[in-house]
């Protein structure tokens, strides 16, 4: 098993690590049994994701996919962000080893959960 240079680069210098204070949406996925827990925070203005941050407990692929997805969604509309799939993330990292593909799933799931959370909060505030 070996990682692409891009995975290693994102693992070594992950973008947007941290938490957002008073986020508009939070998505948390994974569990300690499978070894990955991702938490994604988003800030939304005018249907655009204006800020995004993550915290991840996981392997190299999990950290790299978390970092990559934050880059992919920043300043995108919610509609655009919702279209981001596991494949988008894996492709952007020049691919992932076969047994690590579930990591890209987790990243995409965390994002979609965060958007869902945002929508729910908006509804209950309306």
């Amino acid at each position: 098993m070996s990682y692409s240079d891009k995975v290693i680069e994102h693992f070594t210098n992950p973008r947007n690590v941290g938490e957002i204070e008073n986020p508009d949406g939070v998505g948390e996925v994974g569990n300690p049994v499978c070894g990955d827990i991702m938490k994604l925070f988003i800030k939304v203005e005018n249907d655009h994701i204006v800020d995004v941050k993550f915290k991840t407990f996981g392997c190299g692929a999990a950290i790299a996919t978390s970092s990559m997805i934050t880059e992919l969604v920043k300043n995108k509309t919610l509609e655009e962000a919702e279209k981001i799939s596991r494949k988008t993330v894996a492709d952007a990292l020049d691919g992932l080893p076969k047994n690590k593909l579930h990591c890209s799933n987790l990243a995409a799931d965390a994002l979609h959960k965060a958007i869902e959370d945002y929508k729910k909060r908006k509804k209950s505030n309306a």
Binding site: F11, V33, G35, C59, K100
Partner: peptide
Amino acid sequence: EGESIILSLDMKGVAVASGSACTSGSLEP
């Protein structure tokens, strides 16, 4: 998580192993 430690140590020239799921190729530790 163990694998992220292995990777980081490897970048510094130190080779170790882990009992984490991610290094065993399974989804369980």
